[in-house]
Structure formats: C-alpha cells, structure tokens
Design a protein around this nucleic acid. Structure first.
Length: 560
RNA sequence: GCCUCCGUAGCUUAAUGGAUAAAGCAAGGGUCUUCUAAGCCCUUGAUGCAGGUUCGAUUCCUGCCGGAGGCACCA
C-alpha cells in the first residue's frame, strides 16, 4: 500500500529518480492512522528539509491532491500523508477478489525441511526445523513457485557400525519391531555404556563392511531405516507435513569416490596426512575434509553429490537448506567447493539458519545426558495440557469438540512460537511461554477468527462491497487499511525467508479486528447498507486470517 | 588461540540508517443484562561500555566487557 502511494506520488511529481523517495516497510506511526510517511534520503546538493517542503508544495497544487486529507512536513526529510477515506475504501473494494501474486512463475525450488537421524528420536530442534521449512515452502507456493519438500535423513556414518554391532550382540527382533526407535536408541546407549577401544574398532569394522555392501549388514541397515521412517511418519502427520522426496545420505556414498577422484584430478582437492582435503584459505575458510584416511567419505562429500543431483536431475533453481546456526561453517565450505566446481551457475543455494534451542540454563541440550526433549513426547504433553485449558475455558463444548480444539490450538501455539521470531540467535525452551495463550500467540489469532465467524453467522445479512464508503469509524478504517497490507507482508517474508513478518502482521490484524468488533456492534446496525459493508470487512478479515495462518501451517476453528 | 552469531523494559521479543525505540508476558487498576472475557481500556518500565562515520545510529566501523556456537578424519 505504501509503495503504491509512493509510486503514485513519485509519478505525480515527476520524480524519476526513485532514490529520492523512500518508504518505510513497516509503519511506525500509530495504531490506527491511515497515514503514509515518506522519508526523503539525502540527495546531492539538497537538504532533506528543503526537498520535503518542495514536494509538499508540488503535491498541494497537483490535480490529485484530493486523494489525501493531510499533507504535512514532519521534520527534516519526512512527509506525512493521510489517505482520504474515499481512497482507502476504493482500494478495499478491489480486494474482492484479490489478484494472486504470480512471482515465482513455477520455478523449481527444493526446500530441505528436516534431516532427522535414523534410529534416534526426533527432538524439539527437529520440530523447529520442519516448522520453519514448511512455512517457507508454503509462502513460496503462494507466490507461484513449484516447491519440492525434501527429507534428507541421516542413515550413514560410523554410528551405524556401532548400531549394527550392538544389535548383533544384544538385539531382539521382537523388541525392535514393537518400539523401533526406543529400542535402537537403547542399544546405541548400551554400546556407549560398555565402551572401550575394542568395541569401537569392531564397530568401525562393521561400518566398513556396510560400505562394501556386506549382505547381512545391509539388510539390518535397511531394516533400521524402514522402521524408523515409519515411526517418523506419525510425527510428520501430526505436524501436517508431507514430503515429496525422502532420501538418506547412504544412497550418495557410492558416487563420492568418482567425485573425489575428479576433484583430485583438476587440482581442487589434495592429499593431506592420508586424507583428502580442499584448501579454502583463499575463501577465508578452514580446510575442508572430503575423505577420511581410511577411504570412507564424509558428510560434506555426500552433500556435494546430493547438490549435484538436485541441480541436474531435479532442475532446481533455488535450493534452500533449513538447518541450525551451528552448521554455518559446514555450509560455507560446501558452497565454496560447489562454486569451485561450477555447480552454482544460475542457482540460488541458501542456508536458512535459525538459532539453537537451548535448555532452561541457556546451554545446548546434551544428547549424552539424555536431556533432549523428544518431539513426539512434547506434542502429546502439549495436547494434554491444552486439553485442560479448553476444559477450563469452554466447558460447554462437547467432548469431541474439546479434543479437536485442543489439537488445533496446541499445534498452532507450538508452531507460532517458532515462526514469530525473526532472529537467528538462540532461543530458550520454556513450557510456560509455549502454553501462554494470551497476547501474541496463535490462539489469540484463532480466537479472533472464530469471533468473526460467529458474528458473520449471527448477523442475519450478507456481506457486500457495494457501499464501503459508509465505513467511516476509525476502527473500521484501521481494519481496512490493515487488510491492504497482507501481500506486502508475504513479499517481505520471501525476501529473507523469514516468517516473522507474516506472523506479526497476522497478530496486528487480529488485534485491529478485536478493537473493531469490540467497539462496533454489527448485528444491531439498522443501516442495512452499512451493515453489509461491515460484514464485508468481517468476511475479508476472517479470510485473510485463515489464509495467513495456513501459510504458517496453522489451522483455524469456526468455534473455539 | 582463531572464526561466526548475539547483548534493547523484571522476562520473551520488534524496529530497509530515520520521526516521541514497538509489542507480548509479568505487576497494578478498570471492564461481561448487548455478536465468545483465549477479549477490550488505562498505568509503570529499556538500546552492555567507550569511541568513530552520518544532518540522523538499536542498526554501519573500531576497541572492551558478557553469553552461545563452530574450528579435517562426527553428522
């Protein structure tokens, strides 16, 4: 909206040099004004204050001055505009129906949502990863990109040698079949408890055999993978996430030999202490390891193969990897090598990073101490606690209804908690915060949606965009203005792959809507035309809240 | 030791280099004969320290202090 006005003003005034006019992306001037501020950046030879005054003069004498109710200078370099109600409501009527944003033009995007480890439970961090990734994927789809959601799971490495050995020594088939991940984790933990040089050596031997295609080990490895994925699937379903492709690291291992040979041939890689490395000093990065001295590939090398496949086979134009901050260096090395190889011509390869989830003491959760909060456990606890809150607040609902509300509210709160924050710095896990359903939270927005739906259902009239000019109360105009900013919030999210703009937009919209129906009674409005116009506002707001939340992967309820 | 991220109100967070630094929670006060009180209204309260660049710095640069993460045979 502001951009539109800015462009309009620039056109009116013949300001071709766009840099002279800047418009803030976010409003910072009050809750209810339909003001638009222009900030004039310094131009050569011109003082911002003089420029502001000059523009105001031109605006006032222009033929379209009637679009604005107030045009005034607000300090050096600032101009305040107040859009006239007429201009505002005419914009609003264009929202029915709203034109979709065709920006992506079906370009192929791969989003790596999550990379869980086989035979280990997913913890809260994985949830954060998937929630952020899914929301970014949905936002890109909304903008007309063709998104492929990817689960690149960890099924390779020495720890699988340990697991295979542990199973051979102590494993029971029935137990693994009954509770796969729990049992496999127990075997892995037992292995570490027993410990010792000899066991470690034998585990390395088992892994070596697996890489060489030993049939018994391969069979076990495939089995562990299969049962783990079946169990993961339950959690993905709960989170409402579906993958287009699920592949493990192991499937890229064999090809790495040729890749490493090629890198050695063209001089990108070299030998060092029996291992094969890439020197990245010119890029300002530490040396990267490609192959261990025992000839086994590492994570980085397998990911290079993965990247190659994503570009050549899947024709991806953008590849977005959602993974925590702590892998920044790894990703930088990966990207630097890919660039040396010429993989990234015309390809965007981005690390969407997020802050670590820390325990209540502000430290990284330790796997060894068993501190990790399991995702499935967290989700069921969350639902249980939410169910109690529903029972308290809305005892009149039927039992089935209470379950449904608890599910949708609990998941919404959990997801919103991760999506509302922009920062890449670490966040501390906190039950109370997650269960706080007041204020800036998904339940607040879900509540507002349900209220609006309730009003629409009880109004006894139909919405219409015919007489929007009858909307003159400040709460109505504020809501109208907010509605116009939806697309802007989405585009802003896309720019930096950050979901917080949308989340805070939706919270703002819900807040504005709350003020609207708190102050303006709709069902008793005797002016039928105005009532229909108000119901149009109600309908549009509900639609926008629903669609916005769905871009965050959050559902709404008609009743709460 | 080196590199990266971070430091804003009692707590959790917001602010393309712009206006009087914005919210939520917590605390205190008010508000349900009227479309759902998970709501609405009011009050209290902040940029780690020291410089620099700029008409203007929470934002950019330098140093210091404090926190977290990473740094070739793990992923």
């Amino acid at each position: 909206m502001q951009e539109k006005v800015a462009r309009y003003i620039a056109n009116t005034l013949g300001l071709d040099e766009a840099p002279a006019v800047e418009v803030p992306a976010q409003e910072s001037f009050g809750h209810y004004s339909s003001n638009v501020a222009l900030i004039l950046s310094k131009k050569e030879g011109k003082n911002p204050r003089d420029l502001a005054l000059e523009i105001i003069e031109k605006l006032k004498s222009s033929d379209k001055a009637g679009l604005f109710e107030k045009i005034e200078s607000a300090g050096p370099g600032f101009i305040n505009f107040t859009l006239s109600n007429k201009a505002l409501t005419s914009e609003l009527s264009k929202l029915a129906p709203q034109a979709p944003i065709k920006k992506g033009k079906k370009a192929k995007v791969i989003v790596e949502l999550i990379s869980p480890n086989i035979a280990k439970p997913m913890h809260v961090g994985h949830g954060r990863n998937a929630i952020i990734g899914e929301s970014v994927a949905r936002i890109l789809e909304k903008l007309d990109y063709k998104v492929t959601r990817w689960n690149y799971f960890g099924d390779w490495g020495t720890q699988f040698g340990k697991l295979i050995l542990a199973y051979k020594m102590w494993g029971k088939k029935e137990k693994v079949e009954k509770e796969p991940i729990k049992e496999l984790l127990a075997l892995y933990t037992k292995f570490h408890a027993e410990g010792g040089e000899e066991l470690e050596a034998r585990a390395r031997e088992e892994f070596k055999k697996l890489t060489e295609g030993d049939s018994e080990n391969t069979k076990l490895w495939k089995w562990f993978t299969k049962v783990s994925l079946i169990e993961f699937e339950k959690t993905f379903k709960e989170l409402d996430i579906k993958f287009d492709i699920q592949k493990g690291e192991g499937s890229y291992d064999k090809k790495t030999k040729a890749l490493v040979q090629g890198l050695l041939k063209n001089g990108i890689a070299k030998e060092s202490e029996g291992a094969i490395v890439v020197d990245l000093e010119a890029e300002g990065l530490p040396t990267a390891l490609l192959q261990k001295s025992d000839g086994v590939s590492v994570y980085l090398t397998r990911e290079l193969e993965l990247l190659k496949e994503r570009i050549s086979k899947y024709k991806a134009k953008k590849i977005l990897i959602v993974v925590g901050n702590e892998q920044t260096l790894h990703f930088q090395q990966l990207k630097a090598i890919a660039q040396k190889l010429g993989f990234l011509e015309g390809i965007e390869y981005t690390h969407i990073k997020y802050g670590l989830l820390l325990n209540e003491e502000g430290k990284k959760f330790s796997t060894r101490k068993g501190e990790l909060i399991e995702l499935s456990e967290l989700l069921s606890q969350l639902k249980e606690r939410t169910r109690k809150i529903v029972e308290e607040k809305n005892p009149q609902l039927s039992e089935r209804r209470k379950d449904e509300v608890a599910n949708v509210v609990a998941l919404g709160a959990f997801k919103y908690n991760d999506l509302k924050e922009r920062r890449t710095s670490d966040i501390t896990f906190n039950w109370d915060k997650m269960l706080d359903f007041n204020g800036d939270s998904a339940p607040y927005i879900q509540y507002s949606y349900a209220r609006l739906r309730g009003i629409a259902a009880k109004a006894g009239a139909k919405p219409s965009s015919k007489n929007l000019s009858l909307l003159t109360e400040k709460e109505e105009l504020a809501l109208a203005k907010k509605l116009l900013d939806f697309n802007g919030a989405i585009l802003q999210c896309e720019k930096e792959y950050v979901t917080s703009f949308l989340a805070s937009y939706l919270f703002d919209l819900a807040k504005t809507a709350n003020k609207f129906y708190e102050n303006i009674r709709i069902s008793t409005d005797e002016d039928k035309k105005r009532k229909s116009a108000r119901l149009f506002l109600v309908e549009k707001t509900a639609q926008t809240l629903k669609e916005g939340l769905s871009l965050l992967g959050i559902e709404v309820l008609e009743q709460i």
